[in-house]
Design a protein around this nucleic acid. Structure first.
Lengths: 348, 348
DNA sequence: TTGAAAGCGCTAACAA
DNA sequence: TTGTTAGCGCTTTCAA
């Protein structure tokens, strides 16, 4: 039953009101305003439109969603919206979505798979058109299984799942060539004369960082340099992770390192802060490289060598996958390109 | 009429299905699951709950919104989600919202009032519980008027409008003490020995930046230093704005400047890049200070003097205003605190 | 305490 | 081309 409008609250103008004002049926008004295939008489069209304007009508999205059984909203799941990488990604996805007349709602997983699963459940209830999962992407078999189940249920009810930079799951994907990017970076650094490395990895269970570590290792091996396991330090996928990892390094290991590769820029920046704290200069005492090319790098001196991820392209591709409903398990790889800067000068 | 489910698509489980499985009426199921005031028999309660779990039921939010005539979603309007200030604000608002069981949808205005107005219209259609307007806030009378009209219509249909750091409109507000913060910063800088200043303002029409410029001016005047109009440079409220402003400064003006105050950190960082380009060092050749204390400042060397805006507190206050429906035109001021760092060393 | 039934605003199949 | 009407999934009043 209708609840009584609160005192001081006006009932919103509905399509019914518009139809009455224009002297047509509600269906005709619907056809004119929210555009169906059917064609409507020019004059009625005008009458409806001007009635809508006069009454200041706006469509009730929820009602449309209920009636149509599907919405025009895609959900973007990120770990942390305050992180430079994810906020750029969000901006890119929103830009791309607009071109398709889609709304984007952002949800934050806080790097927590349980929460991720819960969010997917909620989004199923919201009839989201698609879910774009950016970031995280754990290798943990059990949790992944639960997540996959939930995602599958989402697709069963008509939604599309798009994975960004996280592999091995049976859904549409936009992949970064993390492996190739890191491999080429390693090769370029060796060519610059670097010989001894320390890698700052993130949680082993993260697919993307795993690939970046592997790629870097392969790149070195391609030039006959072996990366020992004790030259890989695992930490959190964040600024703090990079900072802490450096703080925890012992003196001799640090001294033996010519270059530190952090699997993402935030970690690299944290590492730089950590090095500064320990009285070491970049690149004089140790060189450093990151991955992502986040926007805030433009403020860093010396400029940071990194691998650029074209977020705009990633956003476009993610939305493209989200709207093509046929493309289940469709796969698209976006290239990442090495950007050499001052933090890794030519050696000797 | 019901559309036929697409091949391969399962119809989502509805409350009706749950009720039938539990052998109760739909109303009872509704009361159990989506909690009304009414009390339900313990045993039925269990039956409904277990049926829901077994069937993997999730409520259809849109349907709830339609039936209830109001939603649990608050909308956050920001200029640019990739901007460090706004993405932190978004994170803070989302955190605060969760504690109240509210969803947040983020919309991007691209610093465009027309777009802002359009978004508010849409949100009225979506029955958003509240709209939080962060950033921008123009002084332009005509556009502001149109925006206010739209916001008023939003409130007329039962929503709450919350303005963050933008004044003089008849809605609930969370205000930063931009004026006081800037005033205290100026005072602190004079005490450090600075005497000649250049201010990088943003579009004159932005309320927040206007207050920051005024506050800074007042702070200087308090110590007998006058800020001439030609010592205030107006530019865009962004990194590029700061960069460009410095590029455009003439040599003599730059030489005469001991300290540059940019009305936000992004501009300050842009300005630093601009100075670097012109071969000037910070703080040796010129000191610099910003406003906001955005997260990425932790990567900046020398560290940047600024005025800290406690975004978490702002987010909490904004959500608090959003939920208390009585509080129309309620007003809350959040303090900003001066943080002196290496970019403004003691002079002489 | 429970259920039947009306209604939220909108869409779409069907008949005219 | 237009209108009538049933229905989307849910809430809530009202009567039992």
């Amino acid at each position: 039953m209708a609840r009584a409008p609160q005192p001081g609250q006006r009932k919103p103008v509905t399509l019914f009101d518009v139809a009455r004002a224009a002297g047509v049926s509600q269906s005709t008004a619907s056809r004119v305003i929210n555009g169906s295939q059917r064609v409507v008489n020019e004059e009625l069209q005008q009458r409806v439109l001007s009635a809508a304007t006069k009454l200041n009508y706006t469509a009730n999205l929820s009602a449309q969603t209920v009636a149509r059984g599907k919405s025009t909203t895609v959900a973007l799941l990120v770990s942390d919206i305050a992180d430079g990488y994810f906020s750029s990604m969000a901006a890119a996805v929103m830009r791309a979505a607009e071109a398709h007349g889609l709304r984007v709602t952002i949800a934050v997983t806080e790097r927590n798979v349980e929460r991720e699963i819960e969010l997917v459940r909620e989004l199923r209830g919201q009839h989201a058109r698609a879910i774009i999962l950016a970031g995280s992407g754990y290798l943990d078999a059990k949790l992944t299984q639960a997540l996959v189940r939930e995602l599958q249920m989402f697709e069963d009810t008509g939604g599309t799942v798009v994975l960004v930079s996280r592999s091995n799951l049976p859904f549409a994907q936009v992949d970064l060539d993390n492996l190739e990017g890191a491999r080429r970076l390693a090769a370029a650094l060796v060519r610059l004369g670097y010989q001894s490395f320390t890698v700052l990895g993130a949680e082993r269970t993260l697919v993307a960082t795993h690939d970046r570590v592997q790629g870097f290792r392969l790149g070195l091996e391609g030039h006959g340099i072996m990366l020992r396991d004790d030259q890989i330090l695992y930490s959190n996928f964040s600024w703090e992770g990079g900072f802490d990892a450096i703080q925890a390094m012992d003196e001799s290991a640090l001294d033996a390192t010519e270059l530190i590769f952090a699997v993402n820029d935030e970690m690299a920046l944290g590492a730089i802060a950590g090095l500064r704290e320990r009285g070491m200069r970049v690149p004089d005492d140790v060189a450093i490289a990151g991955f992502d090319d986040i926007r805030s790098l433009r403020n860093i001196v010396p400029s940071l060598t990194t691998v650029r991820v074209p977020v705009d392209e990633v956003g476009r591709q993610a939305i493209a996958r989200a709207v093509e409903d046929g493309g289940r398990a469709d796969h698209k790889v976006v290239n990442a390109t090495v950007v050499l800067r001052d933090s890794t000068p030519r050696r000797r």
